[in-house]
Design a protein around this nucleic acid. Structure first.
Lengths: 144, 144
DNA sequence: CGGTAACTGAAAACCTTTTTCAATACCAGT
DNA sequence: ACTGGTATTGAAAAAGGTTTTCAGTTACCG
């Protein structure tokens, strides 16, 4: 609920509206423990708001990314997916089996970036970091 | 030339062939200082081998990635591009303006991965790390 | 409430990537 | 060199995924 009002305020500040379709999309991504593709989000959000169109899903996802509430993940299989973001500068550790995503912020790449700046002369302003592994629950399942 | 023979040997071991179209694609990616999209690679490689088909470009790129000679980059604008790889475990620092790509290997994420393993219980096996910035030459150009 | 700007959804357009299949090129063995 | 067999090729078509268009609708502010 806190999220909802926060988003509502945020939208109003930019002369934008909190509509039912947007609520449906937002809700699906926020509730999910895992990353979801636009098609998956469409399917799930449709249950909540049946007349939803796929177009709106894409538009809403762009909007939410821009607002910083969700984040786009680039994965090798079926890139692109989306996950909710709690922190401002969040990275994700994703389970290759079930898609569950854990967020972390302490990426501490400063030493690396400093040495690369010195070595290459680049200005470095963005970095993307994603880890992929297997979550405990999927590991246990596989043992059997 | 060294690359070429290395690849030739590598292909033969797997009962695969080093054909003209493949040479053309390989050559384009290897020579480029920057990352290139499949369409760009197609255009450039066509100059060398005019009857080249786009299909073959895709197939060859997959093959070269699998063999480890090139690498796929995931960039926010127009993901996917490809770059040549020198080292086995290489990451890239890419210029947002000209696309030039610098490779580096010393990513030292072990401390982070160790702490995440402890915190989340995940097995972590892959990580993707890409840095984006502005190369010295593009920075100078912009100053004017 | 009512006016207005923002938003929506269906359809079409677009772009990228993959599949299909008959023709071709490479390479090993002679 | 030549040749047979298999991997590879390229055009066309199919398949995906994403964006654009536009007339109708909805949320929000006064």
């Amino acid at each position: 609920m806190t999220d909802s009002t926060l988003i509502h305020t945020n939208l109003r500040q930019n002369h934008r509206k909190l509509t039912r379709p947007r609520q449906a999309v937002l809700d699906v991504v926020m509730r999910a423990q895992r990353h979801l593709t636009p098609a998956e989000i469409y399917q799930k959000a449709k249950k909540r708001h049946p007349r939803l169109g796929l177009t709106t899903v894409y538009r809403t996802l762009d909007l939410l990314v821009e607002m910083g509430f969700i984040q786009r993940l680039h994965l090798d299989e079926g890139c692109h997916s989306y996950v909710a973001t709690q922190q401002a500068h969040g990275h994700h550790l994703v389970c290759a089996d079930c898609g569950r995503a854990e967020e972390f912020a302490d990426c501490d790449l400063e030493p690396l970036m400093k040495s690369l700046r010195a070595k290459t002369g680049y200005d470095i302003d963005v970095h993307m970091l994603e880890l992929v592994g297997h979550c405990p629950s999927c590991r246990h399942k596989q043992k059997r």
